[in-house]
Design a protein around this nucleic acid. Structure first.
Length: 188
DNA sequence: TAGGCGATGCTCT
DNA sequence: GAGCATCGCCTAG
C-alpha cells in the first residue's frame, strides 16, 4: 500500500473497510475519497498540530476520526510519514456485509443512504472518537481489506463542502457507482 | 428525485 | 463568537 497521499487515495478506492464489533460484522467497499495534503489550506493539519488533529500526524494507515458540525463524525486514513499531517477522507462506501445492522444504526431501510456521505458511513459502521488513532492494518475490529474486485474506473473532481482551496481536484470516486455522494455535476 | 436551508456543538481565534 | 471535510427535512417539479 502506498504512503504517498494521492497514490493512497486512488488505492483506497475498491478496498473494503471492515468493522468487526460485538454487535456484528459490517463491511463496505470504498467508492469515494478526498485527499488532504501538505500546504493545503483546507486541511486540518494546515495550521499545525493541535489536540484535535493529533492523530492526523501519526504514521500511515492510522484512523483520524473527528466530529463535524456537532452531529457527525468523519473518518480519515493517515498517509505520508509520521509528523507530516496528511490524510485521506473516506466519503462513501458501497454496503457489502451486515446490512441489517447498518440499517438499524442508521434508522433507515434505504440501501443508498446507509454509507453515502462521511457522517453516514461512520454512523453505519459505528465509528466514533473511540476509533481515533486506530491502526487500520493490524487491528481486529476496524481494518482495511483487499477484496480483489475488478479494477474500478477512477475519476477525480473538486472536493465537496469546503471553501478553502476548493478548486483543487483532490476528490477521487468510482465512476458510475450509485453509492458515491455529492451533487450530480461532480459525478460525471 | 433534486435542490435549498436550518440545526447542531465543538474547536480555534 | 465565528466557522465548519454534514445531515435530514421540506418543497417544487
Amino acid at each position: 500500500m502506498p504512503h504517498d497521499t494521492l497514490a493512497l487515495a486512488k488505492t483506497l478506492i475498491g478496498l473494503v473497510l471492515v468493522r468487526d464489533a460485538r454487535a456484528g460484522l459490517c463491511a463496505g467497499k470504498i467508492v469515494e475519497v478526498e485527499a488532504y495534503v501538505g500546504n493545503d489550506p483546507a486541511s486540518h493539519a494546515y495550521r499545525g498540530q493541535t489536540s484535535r488533529n493529533r492523530s492526523m500526524f501519526l504514521e500511515p494507515f492510522r484512523a483520524y476520526v473527528y466530529r463535524i458540525y456537532g452531529t457527525s463524525f468523519c473518518f480519515n486514513v493517515t498517509a505520508q510519514s509520521e509528523g507530516e499531517g496528511e490524510a485521506v477522507l473516506v466519503r462513501a462506501l458501497e454496503p457489502l456485509e451486515g446490512l441489517p445492522l447498518m440499517m438499524e444504526r442508521r434508522g433507515t431501510q434505504r440501501m443508498r443512504d446507509l454509507c453515502r456521505g462521511p457522517g453516514r458511513l461512520c454512523q453505519a459502521l459505528s465509528i466514533d472518537s473511540n476509533d481515533d488513532g486506530q491502526d487500520l492494518i493490524g487491528s481486529a475490529d476496524l481494518y482495511l481489506a483487499d477484496a480483489r474486485f475488478a479494477s474500478p474506473l477512477i475519476r477525480k473532481s473538486k472536493r465537496i463542502g469546503i471553501t478553502k482551496a476548493a478548486h483543487r481536484h483532490l476528490r477521487f470516486y468510482e465512476r458510475g457507482n450509485p453509492f458515491v455522494s455529492g451533487p450530480k455535476h461532480l459525478n460525471p
